[in-house]
Design a binder for these strands. Structure first.
Lengths: 114, 114
DNA sequence: CTGGAATATTCGCATGTGGTAATATACATT
DNA sequence: AATGTATATTACCACATGCGAATATTCCAG
């Protein structure tokens, strides 16, 4: 009984574990948006954004309603926004180490570019 | 400047996105534990637990101190525990759909077993 | 310094995830 | 019906992740 619950939580975190999906949720946190509006604000490929929306839908983190030609998305439960808010404070609390991690990431990026 | 921040958050969520690591953090939430104690409580392979601990260390979610032969782990920032607590309320709020998801998972499991 | 715990790391493999390009679907307008 | 627009899905490929088995490291006891 313990493990399935944790699998469920892990799946939710998995859904949150992508910068684009975080961006989507943060944008939706301010209110409902159409898929097209999201694509425009993110400045990314249509198919790509649509796939990320599919992930968020599958894990029930967002709801959508169709209006004619368009599909409007919104965050299903404000708890998710709250989680993201907490992560922001976590980030601020660990700004220094985070910078270190970012440096590492940039180094890795540079190396792989050579 | 926006994207690296989200990449950082996504990385943290990624670290949380595994049932074993969630179990580890929940156990550590109640107080410091040695690697050995964790392995015993989890009832999993030593190497496997050690690898998950390595992930949590890399993302700085836990700290460790060596005492002689042993290594004691603890949660680095209570915010993480708070995030897990929020996820619990999320789970309860969506118990029904969650059950549905678990059913799906079990079906998938059963099918792959045939 | 040798043997034995406790823990970490490496390797090889199977599976999962993310991206783009191409295609499909659904609705609206004419 | 035919075309155009908004969105979703599929196919394919590169890369990341998780696991067990084996090996390495670190520290203590004798």
């Amino acid at each position: 009984m313990q493990d399935p619950l944790r699998r469920f939580k892990a799946d939710i975190f998995q859904a949150l574990a992508h910068p684009t999906r975080i961006a989507i949720l943060e944008l939706l946190g301010e209110g409902e948006l159409s898929a097209g509006a999201l694509i425009e604000k993110l400045g990314m490929e249509q198919a790509n954004v649509s796939q990320h929306l599919a992930v968020l839908r599958a894990k029930q983190l967002v709801t959508n309603r169709k209006v004619g030609n368009q599909v409007f998305y919104s965050v299903r439960d404000p708890i998710i926004i709250e989680v993201l808010r907490l992560m922001r404070s976590f980030f601020h609390a660990h700004l220094k180490e985070a910078m270190g991690m970012l440096d590492e990431m940039q180094k890795d990026l540079a190396e792989s570019g050579r």
